[in-house]
Computed example of a mutant assay.
Amino acid sequence: MSGFQAINRHWKQGARRGLWLSLLLFLLVSAGSSQAAGFSVEGLKTRKVEGVYLMDADIHYQFSDQALEALDSGVPLTLEVHTQLRREGAWIWEADLLDVRLRYRILHQALHGLYQVTDIANGTQQYFATRKAAFTALGRIRDVQLIEAKKLQQGETYRLSLKSSLDIEALPLPLRPLAYLSPAWNLSSEWSLWRLQP
């Protein structure tokens, strides 16, 4: 490696560190100025299609100012949708029929001016020109396969629970300590419930 390449690499590393430090400083300074933020789940429901129960839901994402600033600065945000299905009134030692975590990521591509929404499980990507459109797509959960109908007992009632939260562990390492300490990053919905009767 030439001397120029070494200097160039060192400069790039320093510039990256400076960018992260600037972002951290901004987030610390603005930690108390966040708008009302939080997530809410609406329209959680199931339907049976060809012997399989599918789940639909709409999640309204209201991010804090700090999270929005980070997103627009190129920090990807990962959302985790935790879904559980168990028999109503089940004993505590009874296993869940379903316990899955769906993961989605949103990233702002400043070069193209687009927001990229990725379904992490299957790698599907969508692109949107506005943040609002991207958030709407991010929260639109459709046709998620839950369980085969034959695995449920007739006459029983089952409880489907769903909660969405920002995955702090998926943030870049320099941001995590601040995110754990700041309410502006502690973003999640309440559990939403739907009762399923085969």
Rank of each mutant, 00 (worst) to 15 (best):
Q126A: 15
Y127D: 00
Y127W: 11
F128W: 14
T130A: 02
R131A: 00
K132T: 13
K132S: 07
A133V: 00
A133I: 01
A133W: 01
A133T: 02
A134L: 00
A134M: 07
T136G: 13
A137R: 11
A137L: 05
L138E: 03
L138R: 10
G139H: 03
G139K: 05
G139Y: 03
G139M: 02
R140W: 05
R142S: 11
R142V: 13
D143A: 10
V144Y: 11
V144F: 12
Q145H: 11
E148W: 10
A149P: 04
K150H: 06
L152H: 10
L152D: 07
Q154D: 13
G155P: 02
G155E: 13
G155I: 04
Y158R: 07
R159E: 15
L160T: 03
S161Y: 01
S161K: 13
L162S: 12
K163M: 12
S165P: 06
L166H: 02
L166Q: 00
D167A: 14
I168T: 11
L173H: 04
P174E: 00
P174M: 08
L175H: 09
R176L: 09
R176V: 14
R176A: 06
A179S: 04
A179T: 08
P183Y: 07
A184R: 09
A184T: 06
W185A: 07
N186Q: 15
